[in-house]
């Protein structure tokens, strides 16, 4: 009888092995870092291009000189592709915030946020230099 039951331990061993290895798969699947398909470079490129287009005729500097934050927000809203959230902050040479209103089209719900730093010079008779920080994310 004892001899007949000798092989049962191998079955138990095999089940244990299956359990351990499948558990390791289940745990490792959760530990795997998910690689984002949407590349940050795309957002950066789109954002930088938008700022360049606004700056090409001096509009960007004029918005800031005139403190016309709503027009700047509307212009960015139009130029940026649909479904992209942005938040823009304007700083002066001493890195003091210039805009006293929020220049944004909504809260960010994405974990992937692109950051663009852009230096803009206004064309008014009194020369001003501004540093612009633009954050972009794909709206979800």
């Amino acid at each position: 009888m004892k001899r007949q039951n000798k092989g049962q331990i191998r079955i138990v061993e095999a089940f244990l092995a299956v359990l351990i290895i499948f558990s390791s798969f289940a745990i490792s699947a959760n530990l795997t870092v998910t690689r984002n398909i949407t590349k940050n470079d795309d957002l950066t490129s789109v954002g930088l291009q938008s700022l360049l287009k606004l700056d090409s005729d001096g509009s960007l500097g004029k918005y800031i000189d005139d403190a016309n934050w709503s027009a700047l927000r509307d212009a960015l809203n139009l130029i940026l592709p649909a479904g992209i959230s942005f938040n823009l902050t304007v700083y002066d040479e001493q890195m003091l915030q210039v805009n006293n209103a929020i220049i944004s089209n909504g809260a960010f719900s994405s974990q992937e946020i692109a950051f663009i730093e852009y230096v803009c010079a206004s064309r008014s008779p009194i020369f001003h230099c501004y540093k612009i920080h633009l954050y972009l994310a794909v709206a979800k």
Partner: peptide, 21 residues
């Protein structure tokens, strides 16, 4: 013998495990 049957099942399980892995 019972031990052969056990070994056969154990081997089958191991093969199944490797394939699943």
């Amino acid at each position: 013998p019972a031990i052969s049957v056990d070994t056969f099942f154990a081997c089958s399980l191991m093969v199944l495990l490797v394939l699943s892995a």
